[in-house]
């Protein structure tokens, strides 16, 4: 274990449930580098997650943590944040947890522009339950529940989440840790609903079902070939690749907790 991880890991929760080669571990490492750099104090941050492989991430960290129900991380995070507006709240979630069963909470949390940072680990699949179709599964892809090829199209999460009102959107990949660190760091600094979509390879169930990679490293090579780091101002990569970077930031739209604080003032004066 590296020394940053050593500092923040909840040792009694080990071993990790992650398979060898799972991208989720890379995301956890990146998150720890960022909070260490930002110097976020022990009692200043609450971590919230749903259910899925990705949602196990914060359970291993020595912080106050709510490991909630499938899809409900954002709703619990909003309650936690509403009564602790001065604290940092970070949500760890999967593509299924966040955009599938939790999709309604996702668009409404974005609409509220509540100051929560969401790290959504996207692996095109339901990893934990063994490889079923996720809302991000590509059209035509083979999964355990789409053996004839996915009948449905995946979400365009960038347009969905920013369209709903999120004020920060970054896309990162476990294959590009430097850009991943940056995406998380800027997201945590941003006041408002910050959404970080992280491409996180799942060698076990996506690797076997959607793709037919023999090893995790083959899978990482393929991911590397599919992504391109965006230049500032770009939201789409040329040549049809998946663009990595900060795609959107808006500092104009009012943030929910600040508005709630104003309402408290108004209501107090009226009474």
């Amino acid at each position: 274990m590296n020394s940053t991880a050593e500092k923040y890991i909840r040792k009694e929760a080990l071993p990790f449930i992650f398979c060898p080669g799972c991208g989720h571990g890379i995301v956890v490492n990146s998150f720890l580098r960022v909070i260490d750099k930002l110097g976020i104090g022990k009692n200043q941050m609450g971590l919230v997650s749903g259910i899925g492989c990705s949602s196990w991430s914060p359970v291993y960290l020595q912080f106050d943590c709510l490991h909630t129900l499938h899809g409900r991380a954002l709703a619990q995070a909003e309650g936690l944040k509403a009564v602790n507006p001065d604290k940092t709240v970070v949500v760890f979630t999967g593509d299924g947890d966040c955009a599938g069963i939790g999709g309604n909470h996702l668009i409404h949390a974005a609409k509220r522009n509540v100051d929560i940072t969401v790290i959504m680990m996207s692996n095109y699949i339901y990893g934990m339950t063994g490889g079923q179709r996720a809302p991000t599964t590509p059209y035509g892809a083979i999964t355990k529940t789409s053996p004839l090829g996915n009948e449905e199209h995946p979400f365009d999460l960038f347009r969905l989440v920013t369209g709903a009102g999120a004020t920060y959107y970054a896309r990162a990949s476990a294959t590009h840790p430097i850009q991943l660190d940056k995406a998380i760091e800027e997201g945590m600094k941003h006041k408002g609903f910050s959404f970080i979509e992280v491409l996180s390879p799942c060698p076990t169930t996506a690797g076997r079902n959607i793709f037919s990679f023999k090893t995790p490293s083959e899978m990482y090579d393929w991911y590397e070939s599919q992504v391109a780091v965006l230049k500032p101002g770009q939201t789409e990569a040329p040549d049809g690749k998946i663009g990595l970077g900060i795609l959107y930031m808006n500092n104009e739209r009012a943030e929910l907790c600040s508005v709630q604080a104003e309402k408290k003032e108004v209501a107090r004066n009226e009474n």
């Binding site: 909003e78 509403a82 309604n104």
Partner: peptide, 30 residues
């Protein structure tokens, strides 16, 4: 309005799933 006047927060959520889960979060929030 009265919850705000008392220094608390009222939220109309998107559904009852969100409502009860937000309550759980707020309870752990103290």
């Amino acid at each position: 309005s009265r919850m705000f006047a008392a220094g608390g927060v009222f939220m109309q959520m998107e559904d009852e799933l969100a409502s009860i889960n937000a309550v759980i979060g707020a309870s752990w929030g103290g």
